[in-house]
Structures are given as structure tokens and as C-alpha cells.
């Protein structure tokens, strides 16, 4: 049976791992390759590396880093951050990335999804969406959750799917950094509205939250950062817990 995936997410700045708390106040939590290798041994199903570097030099460091990650990891990994055209995606594919994720750049230029999927296949493309629930609706934000847009979560996710997204990575800004659990209601709605897999992000604090996001939120995968980086919930312990609660995990 297809297993539910546990995905540690590593934010990278200038080639090092950082984790944004509520998208701000970044703290250094270790070497990305070393962390990734540790997660692979621990049973993480996949990794996501997000480049939050703004500078040209930092982006070059990131491409070099992707190559080192690919050389060491024997599990899949997605890279994202700053991918604005097919060429950017191609550089990362050549460096050894299994998938790329696009976020703000796809909101500004939705045709980017068609172009990347057309060139490399839908399986290569994750569309990440940051959204905040406000006044009863889910508003899509760009620039790391700093700028609201006219787009609404569910219609944008459907459009991304139609254009060629292989997966949707949904981060609830209301839940991110709170450690109070995932946005299970919105996730369930999103999952039933889409035919592609949904990765849940934002809010993981306890093992029970992962059970809820799979059982109640119908997520195909769950992503988290700080609870893994600080070893608050070791991946093997989490998987054993999920197994005991009848969730299929590897």
C-alpha cells in the first residue's frame, strides 16, 4: 500500500540550514547535507530544501549544495526558492534535484507551471502555496508570506493542477510556527478538490498532529521543520506511533 510520507523541510540561507519561526527570526540549525543524511537514515521519506537566499552569490551556493545533497542522499528531495523560469528549474534538475517547487513566481506568472511541467513532466513540479485564513476565506500570499494577493487557495490550487502541478504543498500561515496542529479542515477540503497529492505544512508540534493530518486532513504527506531539526520528535518514533494508529508508513 502507498505509504503516507513524512517530509522534514530545511530552509537554506547561504548554504546553511535555517528555520523561520512564523516566517521571521531565523536561527541556524546545522549543515544541510549532514542533516539530510541523518534524516534519510532515520526513515524520512523525502526532504524539501528551500533556498531563502536573495543574493546571486547565495543562489550559486545553493546549486552547488543541491549537487552535494544529490551525491549523498538515496531518498528523493525537492528544492525550491527563487525558481523563475524553465532554465532555473533545469539547472537544479541537472544538479540532481528530483523535484522543484515554485511559489511566488507561479502566482505572478502561472504559465511558468505549464512551461516547467511541459519541459520536465508534471512529476517534477511541486506548487507551494502559502495562504492565510482571514474573513472566512483563504488568501494566497507571496514573498514568504509577506504580500497578500487576489488569489484564493482552492481556486489557485485547482488552476495549478490543471496547468501541470504534480503536487500541492499547502502551508497554512495561521498554523505555521504555532505547534498547535495542521489546518486539517482546509486540507481535507483541498485534498477532495484535487486529484494530485497534497503535502500538509504548518503547525506540527506533537505526534498526534501527524495522525490527525493523515486521518482527518486526508493529506498524502506531512512536512515539518523545527520539531525534527531540534529532535523534539525523532522520525522513527513518529513512524512507530503512526503505525500503531493504523496509518501506513514505510
Amino acid at each position: 500500500m502507498l505509504a503516507k510520507r513524512i517530509i522534514p523541510c530545511l530552509d537554506i540561507r547561504d548554504g546553511k540550514t535555517v528555520k523561520g519561526i512564523r516566517f521571521e527570526n531565523v536561527v541556524d540549525v546545522g549543515d544541510p547535507v549532514e542533516l539530510g543524511a541523518r534524516y534519510a537514515v532515520d526513515g524520512a521519506d523525502e526532504l524539501v530544501y528551500l533556498d531563502i537566499t536573495a543574493t546571486h552569490e547565495g543562489r550559486k551556493l545553493f546549486a552547488d549544495l543541491v549537487e552535494r545533497i544529490a551525491a549523498h542522499l538515496n531518498i528523493p528531495f525537492t528544492v525550491g526558492g527563487g525558481i523563475r523560469d524553465v532554465g532555473d528549474a533545469g539547472v537544479l534538475l541537472s544538479a540532481g534535484a528530483d523535484k522543484v517547487s515554485v511559489n511566488s513566481s507561479a502566482v505572478r506568472d502561472p504559465g511558468l507551471i505549464d512551461r516547467i511541467a511541459g519541459e520536465f513532466g508534471t512529476q517534477f513540479l511541486v506548487v507551494a502555496i502559502d495562504a492565510r485564513n482571514e474573513k472566512g476565506g483563504w488568501t494566497v500570499y507571496v514573498n514568504g508570506g509577506r504580500i497578500p494577493t487576489e488569489k484564493e487557495l482552492f481556486s489557485w490550487a485547482r488552476e495549478a493542477q490543471e496547468r501541470g502541478a504534480g503536487e500541492i504543498l499547502f502551508t497554512s500561515m495561521n498554523h505555521d510556527g504555532t505547534k498547535n496542529g495542521f489546518a486539517c479542515d482546509a486540507l481535507r477540503e483541498l485534498s477532495s478538490a484535487l486529484t494530485i497529492p497534497v503535502i500538509a505544512s504548518g503547525g506540527a508540534g506533537e505526534m498526534q498532529h501527524f495522525l490527525e493530518v493523515f486521518r482527518d486532513g486526508h493529506a498524502d504527506a506531512a512536512l515539518a521543520a523545527s520539531i525534527f531539526h531540534y529532535n523534539e520528535i525523532p522520525v522513527p518514533v513518529l513512524k512507530e506511533y503512526l503505525r500503531k494508529n493504523n496509518i501506513t508508513v514505510r
Partner: peptide, 13 residues
Amino acid sequence: PPGLKVPHMGWNN
């Protein structure tokens, strides 16, 4: 066929 999520993505036996 329609039914579960496609692509079939992830770890399976």
C-alpha cells in the same frame, strides 16, 4: 484510472 491521487507518488511495496 480515476480514484486515488495521480501521480502515484511515494513509497509502495
